[in-house]
Design a protein around this nucleic acid. Structure first.
Lengths: 348, 348
DNA sequence: ATGAAAGCGCTAACAT
DNA sequence: ATGTTAGCGCTTTCAT
C-alpha cells in the first residue's frame, strides 16, 4: 500500500505507520543497522554517529517498533496473561496493580481476563496462548485444577498468586494462611473467648482449605474445640450471610466467629445483626485480608492484613525470573500477614 | 529449528508449537486451505469434509493460531489498550470488567496499564501503540489532555470513559454529572437543607468541573447560594479530609455537604467527626458514585449511583463499532445516574 | 562497523 | 473448492 502511494506521489507523511525500512532510507543506512541502533542491547555494535542519525530519523518519522513483527521473529511477545476470577472483588485490584507495575518496569504488558462466571478460564487461557503470552499468572486456581495441570504439561510458564496447588509443586506467591488464622484465634483467645466458630471459604480453594486447617490447628493449640463451622460457597457477603444463618440454625453456641475473608465477615455481621445479636457486644467477628475500607465499615473490622500489592509484585518478578531461566524459580513465596485489631472484636 | 529436528529424526511430537504447515501436512491439504477451514469467516469456502479433517488435525496437534503472525499479516492485533489512573480506586474495577467482557465477547483482549503516579500515561500509550493495539480506552484524561490530542492527531481510535474532553468532540461514555448533582441537591433541599456546601474534585477533570457546575446550577434553581466550597486535589479520602478542614476553617456555615465522589465524602465524614460534628445529626453528607461497600460504611452513605459496569461495557462497544467503521461512533453516551438515600443524610 | 539474505507464521490476491 | 505466490516488519545468521 504505502509503497504504492509513494510511487504515485510524495505523500504528506505516512499513510500508515513508519517501518524500519523508512528509517533506514531516511538515515541512509541499512535497515539491519537501524534495527541495531534502536535496540539498547545491540546499540554498541553501531558507531555513535550512526546511532544519532537513526534516532533522529526515528523521531522525525514517529517510529515505533512493530511488536507483532518482532514477536513473530523472536518468539517473544512482551506480554503476560493474568487470569482473575473477579476484578470487582476488592482483593484483586492491588494484586493486579503489583503485577502490572513489576511487569511494566521490564517493558512487559499485562493481558487481563476476568473469567467471572460465564467464561471458562480455560477459554481465556487458550486465547492468551494464541496471543503468545510468554507466561501466565493465575489467581483463579483451585487445589486440583485441570487447567493448571494442562498448562504445566504443555510447558507453559505459570505462577499462581493468592492460591496454591495441592502439592506445592508450582511456583506461587501466597500469604501464610495458617499463620493468619492463628493470629485471629490467638487474638480472640487472649481477650477471653473460648467458644469460637469458623466460617470457611470454599474448601476446593487453597485459601479455604488452609485457613480452615489453620483455624483448627490454632484452636487445638489452645486445647479448644471449634464451637461451630459452616462452609461458605463463595468469598462474598451473600455467602457469608448464608453461612452465618446455617451456623445460627445449627444452634451452635459461640461468642466469636473467625471468617475466612472480609466479605464473609461482613455478611456474618449483617446476619447476626438481623437476628438481634450485636457485634462486638454479643459476638466478636474477625475477617481476613484487610480489604480497602474495612476500617470504615460499621463496626470497623478486626482482620488479618495480607500484603496484596506485594503478592502481585512478587508473583510477576517470579515469572520474569522464570522467563529468563533464573534457577530456583519453582519456589513458593509465603508472605507474612499481620493482625489488625479494630472494633468488631471485644473482650468477652 | 523444527525443520532441522525433523530431518534428524522423527521427533516425539513438536519441539515448539504446531503451525499451519504442520496441520496442512497432517490433514493432507494446503496450508491456505487449513487457514480457511479454521476461520469461521472463511470456512464456507471449504468443503465440509476437509473442514472436518483440518479440525481433527488441529485438535490432534493442539494447534493455536499465532496471533503475532496474523497480526503482522492483517494489521489487526485483536487487542485494545486501557489506560487507568489507579485500579485500586473502587470506581475502576467495574468499569474494567465491563470493558473486558464486551471485548472478550468479540475475541479481543485488553492490555491494561495502571498509570498511577510514577509512569506517565504517555509512555504507556506509546508502548501500547508499539504493541499495535487497535484502539485505546482512556479513563485518565483531563479536560485539556495533550496526550489525547496527540493520539487524535495520529488518528488513533480513542474512546474516553468516565471522563470527557472539553468540547465533547471525542467519543466518550460518561454519567450525567450535572444531573447527578441535581439529584443530590434536590434531595437535601427536599428534607429542609438550605445551607449546602460543595467539596469538588479536581477541576481539571471533567467530572470535577461538571459536578461543580451541576451543583451551582441546582442550587441556583432553588434560589440558593452555595454555603461553602473547597476543591479537593484528588478523589481520595485524604483529599476529602483536607478539603473539609479547609471548609471548616473558612467558617462557612452549612448543614449539608455534597461531595463530588464517595471517597471524598468518606474523608469529609472523618474530618467532621474529628471536630465533634455528628453525621447526619449535625451535618448531612452526600457522595457520588455508589462504590461497593458504601451501604456498609458508618453511617451508610447517601450517594448518587453511577452505572460503572455499563459505562465500561458501552465504551468498549463504541470502540468496537468505530474499529468496524460503523458511522456515528463519535457520539457521546450519557448514562443516567440515580439517587440512593441511606443514613448519611437526614432532615434538618 | 555495516550489509545481504533469509525466514518467523500467517493470510490476501490471484490462479486453476 | 483448492493451490500458488508473495510479503507483512522484524531480527538473526552469515558475509564483508
Amino acid at each position: 500500500m504505502r509503497r504504492h502511494f509513494a510511487i504515485i506521489s510524495s505523500m504528506p507523511k505516512r499513510s500508515s505507520a513508519a517501518t524500519l525500512a523508512d528509517i533506514a532510507l531516511h538515515a541512509q543506512v541499512h535497515k539491519t543497522t537501524a534495527s541495531r541502533a534502536l535496540d539498547p542491547e545491540r546499540r554498541h555494535m553501531v558507531s555513535p554517529e550512526v546511532v544519532g542519525r537513526v534516532e533522529a530519523a526515528a523521531r522525525a518519522l514517529n517510529y515505533r517498533v512493530n511488536r507483532a513483527a518482532s514477536a513473530l521473529r523472536t518468539g517473544r511477545s512482551g506480554t503476560v496473561g493474568v487470569l482473575l476470577p473477579d476484578i470487582t472483588n476488592p482483593v484483586f485490584p492491588p494484586i493486579l496493580r503489583g503485577i502490572e507495575q513489576a511487569l511494566a518496569a521490564e517493558g512487559f504488558f499485562v493481558l487481563v481476563a476476568d473469567t467471572g462466571n460465564e467464561q471458562a478460564p480455560d477459554q481465556a487461557a487458550d486465547r492468551m496462548l494464541a496471543q503468545r503470552v510468554e507466561g501466565l499468572i493465575i489467581a483463579t486456581s483451585s487445589l486440583h485444577d485441570p487447567l493448571v495441570e494442562r498448562l504445566v504439561r504443555d510447558q507453559v510458564k505459570v505462577v499462581l498468586v493468592n492460591r496454591r496447588d495441592e502439592d506445592g509443586s508450582l511456583p506461587a506467591v501466597v500469604s501464610d494462611d495458617m499463620l493468619g488464622m492463628k493470629l485471629a484465634v490467638d487474638h480472640l483467645v487472649s481477650i477471653g473467648h473460648r467458644r469460637i466458630a469458623h466460617l470457611s471459604g470454599p474448601l476446593a480453594l487453597s485459601t479455604g482449605s488452609l485457613r480452615q486447617a489453620g483455624f483448627r490447628q490454632a484452636m487445638a493449640a489452645h486445647g479448644l474445640e471449634p464451637a461451630g463451622f459452616a462452609e461458605c460457597d463463595a468469598y462474598s457477603c451473600d455467602a457469608g450471610e448464608d453461612g452465618t444463618r446455617r451456623l445460627l440454625d445449627s444452634e451452635a453456641e459461640f461468642t466469636a466467629i473467625v471468617a475466612a475473608n472480609d466479605l464473609i465477615a461482613l455478611g456474618a455481621i449483617q446476619a447476626l445483626q438481623a437476628q438481634g445479636r450485636k457485634v462486638p457486644q454479643d459476638v466478636s467477628v474477625v475477617g481476613h485480608n484487610d480489604m480497602p475500607l474495612m476500617d470504615r465499615v460499621s463496626p470497623p473490622l478486626t482482620t488479618v492484613r495480607i500484603l496484596h500489592y506485594e503478592m502481585g509484585f512478587r508473583a510477576a518478578r517470579l515469572l520474569l525470573d522464570s522467563l529468563r531461566g533464573v534457577p530456583g524459580t519453582t519456589s513458593t513465596v509465603v508472605l507474612r500477614p499481620e493482625l489488625v485489631v479494630r472494633g468488631s472484636s471485644a473482650p468477652l
